[in-house]
Amino acid sequence: MSKLKIAVQKSGRLNEDSMALLKDIGISIDNGKDQLKASAANFPLEVFYLRNGDIPQYLRDGVVDIAIIGENVLIEKGQELVIAERLGFSKCRVSIAVPKASKAKCLKDLQGQRIATSYPNTVNQFLEQNGITAQLHIINGSVEIAPNIGLADGICDIVSSGSTLFKNGLKEVEVLLKSEAVLAVSPSISKDNQKLLEKLQFRIQSVLRGQNSKYVLLNAPNDKLEEIISVLPGMKSPTVLPLAEKGWSSVHSVIDKNEFWEVIDELKEKGAQGILVCPIEKMVL
């Protein structure tokens, strides 16, 4: 029987988020300590635990069929690889930073400067597009120390909260790109494994829709029902049920979590009462 081979980062936050997603979509993986490969107990899936920077080559070579990987790594090492799904977690940005005492305040101030980075392809392309010439020092790991030891005038690295920059006396002057975890696909994936991938994507999409939505229940006076329903688009249309109290109805719907407070405020203004909001584990369309 064919098995879908997926690569995930060996350790770190992206590993934790990736394994949490697989658990959320109902895949049970028995992974012993320091194990580099593991099989799912309830889905034809093998998980390979790899160094993040090596994953694009494994996809290219067809060693793995798919991978959960940071988009920033794909941009640096595998721009030709196809993204099947944007996953919405492990968000970060690739930024240029300089010492706080530096006079550089924007990109043009980096003309002729020395930049230390683990992302030379990304930085070179960005600088060329903006007509800036700089000298790159390629460093793998601990890039932020380069200005402090006189190796570079600035750095280009991934930034999440910005706390690492702060601790090393650095400030951001330019954001090159924003990144999140994505599901990337090997160009040589087989037809059988493509079908397995489609099943996996269906589960992932159901989980992501649930994470991005809220289930809302409320009580509405019947004379305001039409106005209240107009605020609730839902998946198709809200569910409306009569209450025991005459002249009132119960309305059930789904709203986007990013529009949550604006919608709730509008519902209250239009007369909705007893508003109950619940998380959604999965939403299957």
Rank of each mutant, 00 (worst) to 15 (best):
residue 2 S to V: 14
residue 6 I to S: 02
residue 6 I to F: 05
residue 6 I to N: 02
residue 10 K to G: 01
residue 14 L to K: 01
residue 16 E to C: 01
residue 17 D to M: 07
residue 21 L to I: 03
residue 21 L to F: 05
residue 22 L to N: 01
residue 23 K to S: 13
residue 31 N to C: 08
residue 31 N to M: 03
residue 34 D to Y: 15
residue 43 F to V: 09
residue 44 P to T: 05
residue 46 E to H: 03
residue 47 V to T: 12
residue 48 F to T: 08
residue 50 L to D: 08
residue 52 N to C: 11
residue 55 I to Y: 04
residue 57 Q to D: 08
residue 58 Y to K: 14
residue 64 V to M: 00
residue 68 I to S: 00
residue 69 I to L: 02
residue 74 L to R: 04
residue 78 G to R: 03
residue 79 Q to D: 12
residue 79 Q to N: 05
residue 80 E to P: 12
residue 87 L to K: 07
residue 89 F to T: 10
residue 89 F to G: 06
residue 92 C to E: 12
residue 93 R to Q: 14
residue 94 V to H: 03
residue 95 S to D: 05
residue 95 S to K: 08
residue 96 I to A: 06
residue 96 I to C: 10
residue 101 A to H: 14
residue 104 A to K: 02
residue 108 K to I: 12
residue 109 D to R: 04
residue 113 Q to W: 09
residue 113 Q to A: 10
residue 116 A to W: 02
residue 117 T to D: 03
residue 122 T to L: 11
residue 123 V to C: 01
residue 125 Q to I: 11
residue 125 Q to D: 14
residue 127 L to A: 10
residue 128 E to H: 12
residue 132 I to V: 08
residue 133 T to A: 11
residue 134 A to M: 08
residue 134 A to C: 00
residue 138 I to M: 10
residue 141 G to H: 06
residue 142 S to R: 15
residue 143 V to N: 04
residue 146 A to V: 07
residue 149 I to E: 01
residue 154 G to T: 08
residue 154 G to K: 00
residue 155 I to C: 07
residue 159 V to E: 00
residue 162 G to R: 00
residue 162 G to V: 01
residue 163 S to R: 14
residue 164 T to W: 07
residue 166 F to K: 12
residue 166 F to D: 14
residue 169 G to V: 00
residue 170 L to F: 00
residue 171 K to G: 00
residue 174 E to H: 10
residue 175 V to I: 15
residue 175 V to A: 06
residue 178 K to L: 09
residue 178 K to A: 13
residue 185 V to D: 02
residue 185 V to T: 13
residue 186 S to P: 06
residue 195 K to V: 10
residue 195 K to I: 06
residue 196 L to T: 05
residue 196 L to E: 01
residue 198 E to I: 11
residue 199 K to G: 13
residue 199 K to T: 12
residue 205 Q to T: 13
residue 207 V to G: 03
residue 207 V to W: 02
residue 209 R to S: 08
residue 210 G to S: 01
residue 210 G to D: 11
residue 215 Y to W: 10
residue 217 L to F: 15
residue 219 N to L: 15
residue 220 A to E: 02
residue 220 A to T: 10
residue 221 P to Q: 07
residue 222 N to I: 06
residue 223 D to P: 06
residue 225 L to W: 02
residue 226 E to M: 11
residue 226 E to P: 04
residue 227 E to K: 15
residue 229 I to W: 05
residue 229 I to T: 14
residue 229 I to H: 04
residue 232 L to D: 03
residue 233 P to T: 15
residue 233 P to W: 12
residue 238 P to T: 10
residue 242 P to Y: 13
residue 244 A to Q: 08
residue 244 A to C: 09
residue 247 G to E: 04
residue 247 G to Y: 02
residue 249 S to P: 07
residue 251 V to F: 02
residue 252 H to R: 13
residue 252 H to G: 13
residue 253 S to N: 09
residue 255 I to D: 00
residue 255 I to G: 03
residue 259 E to Y: 06
residue 263 V to W: 02
residue 263 V to K: 11
residue 263 V to D: 00
residue 267 L to C: 04
residue 268 K to W: 01
residue 270 K to Q: 12
residue 270 K to L: 10
residue 271 G to C: 10
residue 272 A to S: 08
residue 272 A to E: 05
residue 273 Q to M: 14
residue 274 G to C: 09
residue 274 G to M: 13
residue 275 I to F: 04
residue 275 I to S: 10
residue 276 L to T: 12
residue 276 L to I: 15
residue 278 C to I: 11
residue 279 P to C: 06
residue 279 P to A: 08
residue 281 E to F: 09
residue 281 E to R: 15
residue 282 K to Q: 07
residue 283 M to S: 06
residue 285 L to Q: 13
residue 285 L to G: 12
